[in-house]
Design a protein around this nucleic acid. Structure first.
Lengths: 161, 161
DNA sequence: GCCACCTTACTCGGATAAGGACTGTCCGAGTCGCTAAGG
DNA sequence: CCTTAGCGACTCGGACAGTCCTTATCCGAGTAAGGTGGC
């Protein structure tokens, strides 16, 4: 089990975008975080397809959040990048081989699949309870109120544009 | 995010092993579930390395649980197959690029990493609360008490041996 | 002075290679049970 | 009848290819802003 590195990148980018008052190009987001510009673009496109961010083409274009940071959960970002398919996929082993279960038992979902699904639901609930704004607030608090003003300052500075 | 199919196989095998009174060869476990014999062996070896099952070589050899099914959690099986590394790995993006955080902020772990870790902890807690014996009981209940006796019967029959 | 058009530069978007992990397979080393011979 | 040595077959264990997904990259289509010429 491994999460794509794009999840981390996307979450950081969403926090930055939540501080922006105008569009931010993908190239600038890449420079701010020191990651591959072209590969980050791929993940931003996934976020755009999911409707979390919106793209503006042409001069002075870039990306912006479609909603307030407080209205976007971490779960939405993770699912947009990773896909909404469950991590555990039941292949119905119980219907194969010598142990093939009688049709009567097929009424209910496989107990193992239910157990794994319950765990994944707990994971999703945990992520659904945290918003992008919460992340920004926490990061700001961790740095004594320095981080977010600095982000806004860098976004406004024309040098990195 | 995708879990290895070996997780599903291993869990089913552990349920079967919890019903066995003697060793069960890997080949038989594969036939019971209709899966690849050689590939299943790979995952069983992982379970053995984790100390969940023990291998017995030679004639009438095979695998057996090292503990009672009630003393083995689903989480242990999943971690044995998937590895105990967390799904989300923080690469410390906050220290890279133009947004490189001041050293003062490095005292605490990245807020994003903490959020992801908390969700993963919830996932693990959920899986840790279910044992192999619980799975066996649930499967048995789902089938009206037919499944587990049938497993024991097939394990005892010499035809599949 | 105002408007329309054009040029320009910048942006995203999808199509295109390289690497690594999961999936699947094979054969060899080691071990236990059975057999048979000897005491 | 009991012990013991040898044989045989069965078991696991690690080493070896195939395929899919993640990672990384590139160039082309589209678009908005700014400048320019005409009215």
């Amino acid at each position: 089990m491994k999460l794509s590195s794009g999840v981390e990148w996307s979450l950081h980018c969403c926090v930055v975008l939540s501080q922006a008052t105008t569009t931010v190009p993908a190239a600038q987001l890449a420079k701010l975080h020191g990651v591959s510009q072209t590969y980050l673009a791929k993940h931003l496109q996934a976020l755009a397809r999911a409707g979390l961010i919106r793209s503006v083409a042409g001069q002075d274009g870039g990306y912006l959040l479609t909603r307030a940071g407080s209205a976007i959960s971490v779960l939405e970002v993770v699912l947009a990048v990773e896909g909404d398919e469950p991590a555990f996929r039941c292949t119905e082993i119980r219907q194969q081989g010598l142990l093939a279960a009688p049709p009567k038992a097929i009424r209910k979902r496989c107990a193992i699949a239910r157990t794994m699904a319950a765990a994944e639901a707990a994971w999703r609930d945990s992520l659904a309870g945290v918003s992008i704004a919460d992340l920004a607030d926490t990061i700001d608090a961790d740095t004594g109120g320095v981080a977010m003003p600095r982000v806004r300052s860098l976004l406004a500075s024309p040098t990195s544009r």
